[in-house]
Design a protein around this nucleic acid. Structure first.
Lengths: 330, 330
DNA sequence: CTGAAAGCGCTTACAG
DNA sequence: CTGAAAGCGCTTACAG
């Protein structure tokens, strides 16, 4: 590996001078000297050692990104958003899949400390809470932002209004004439699911539709739970005409179950999902859904983190708009 | 940030001794001393600075992972495989999305050099070639492995036998009685697509079926190209009974087009895809396809990279088995 | 405009 | 078993 010393020797200057030209400091360097140094760098193929630099500057220009599972279709776009913005701002990201395991989270958090990442972006409010339990942030002096609702009031977060968006989705169904609307929820411990259910409640109440608990089926955000929910629902009431699923995966699971039973979407039963994962576009019929701007959420969270690191003031909560995306399923 | 000095002071030993206990070197340290040091570490919340360590050891335990686009459903599982194995071996991964842009690739490669990653894993043979053009690997002394066919003969690669797998897929179709089999290919400059087409040729030839060029439609691995290919195909020959798509995305695009035309899969036209992306399971009817063990490819590539770094001998080419996964589309 | 020297936080021969 | 010291490759006051 060629070092700053090699460059200095070749250009016949001190390493101080070389450092000045590679860092483009305001400290002036004569044009000829700069030229010589630049040439030496070129000829030797010198790439400054970021470890040495980081050690001194006390920054690594690296951020840690914690997600539950990259193979869940909700996350790739977030990662892409974070990474695009990171690259634009000269940061690099370390990816951590935690599978929601507390043990893995702790392990990664420690690695992040040792590698001295400048900041961390979390997806999944629960994760941030776990970390905060140990006073991780105060102690480590690492900046952080959360994507989604945060249970740690101190961390800035980027989120979406799930209550309102769910309400709009259900009101769309109502407006189309549906009265018997079932819903397939997320797991009970998910803040997101709780909010989406609240939106469902509000829409029905506001439109004078009685809420029937038996039409609320608990799912877990996975395909299978949507698939299975259909059986349960049809047993309870053969006449439901619409389903609001708390995410697209379950909506698509439900669609598959309906197709297998010979029921047509949307003619027999209309369906609306939530998230707008890529999948929802490819399925037949195309799934109507609530678009969550995941890419922008990723991008924005990185922007906020960069601001935080640059000591720019940031807002505690950033709410991004959702949008109803209508396709053929309702 | 607490440093090794703070720990040494608190435990009343030299930093040399602290270093010895955190590194668990064979150099012996008395039990009492070790105990004292460990306690000091605990109490102070000391996390050794990986930058300082890396600077000295000349290794970062970090590897760079270059992929075209994490939002392409083919890649998340690869990333997951790489990351799982990396974590198991104490490595951390920096993720780089290149969107196949030569400029971005170069930029990232330079960042990787500055950050002194120990190794790089590439997906996309073309990428590795570009990098190799500049003698990147010799010059930088960074180890690398390629997922997929590599055009750089020096780099170890993890791949799959696309010719044989495509042939098996087509032979399955033939065995089911199909004679008029169309194929939707990948882009002409993709080695993968060329191989899969070769498999198609071999299957037909070997079974005495005439190859009709008009039944070979060029796609680009994207959903839309599969969707559009159906129009073209039906115009050329209304009587085709099966389609072999070079990847699942195009197969699913074709399925959507067929559904919209009122043609039933598999009764009117059977379809088989390639890759077995998660999507293929969720679509109705379920897509029959060739399973490419992407997770294992990711995992294996990381394993090989770790071996390379540990100076263990590795094989130049590792071929992982594919498998026909039959669902309802054929 | 240029450079010598201290220091960032570690590891590792070397000495005892 | 323990420690003083050199060194990894940079940056940054400080001096001239």
């Amino acid at each position: 590996m060629v070092t700053i010393k090699d460059v200095a020797k070749r250009a016949n200057v001190s390493i101080t001078t070389v450092s000045r030209v590679i860092n483009e400091t305001e400290h002036s360097v004569s044009p000829e000297t700069r030229e010589r140094v630049l040439r030496a760098i070129q000829e030797l193929g010198f790439y400054p050692n970021a470890l040495a630099r980081g050690l001194h500057r006390n920054e690594t220009r690296t951020i840690g990104l914690i997600i539950p599972d990259i193979s869940n279709p909700y996350y790739p776009s977030i990662v892409r958003g974070v990474e695009d913005e990171a690259q634009a701002q000269g940061y690099t990201i370390i990816l951590a899949n935690t599978y929601r395991s507390k043990e893995k989270i702790t392990k990664y958090l420690n690695v992040f400390r040792e590698k001295r990442v400048d900041g961390i972006i979390f997806t999944g409010g629960g994760v941030a809470r776990d970390a905060a339990d140990e006073n991780f942030f105060e102690q480590s002096n690492i900046a952080a932002v959360v994507i989604g609702k945060s249970r740690n009031a101190k961390l800035p977060s980027v989120q979406v209004n799930n209550v309102q968006a769910a309400r709009e989705a259900c009101e769309y169904l109502i407006q189309k004439g549906h009265k018997k609307i079932a819903t397939i929820t997320g797991p009970g411990n998910s803040i997101t699911a709780v909010d989406r259910l609240e939106g469902y409640y509000q829409a029905l109440k506001h439109n004078g539709i009685e809420i029937r608990e038996e039409l609320i089926i608990q799912g877990n955000f996975e395909f299978d739970s949507g698939y299975q929910a259909v059986d349960v629902l049809l047993e309870k009431d053969k006449d439901i005409t619409a389903i609001f699923a708390h995410n697209d995966m379950m909506a698509i699971g439900a669609m598959k179950a309906l197709a297998e039973k010979g029921l047509r979407v949307p003619d027999d039963i209309a369906i609306i999902g939530f998230d707008n994962i890529p999948l929802s576009l490819y399925v037949t019929p195309g799934l109507s859904t609530v678009t969550v701007p995941v890419y922008e959420m990723g991008r924005t969270s990185m922007k906020i983190l960069a601001d935080l690191l640059a000591k720019v003031e940031v807002s505690r909560i950033t709410t991004l708009p959702t949008k109803l995306t209508l396709r053929q399923s309702c």
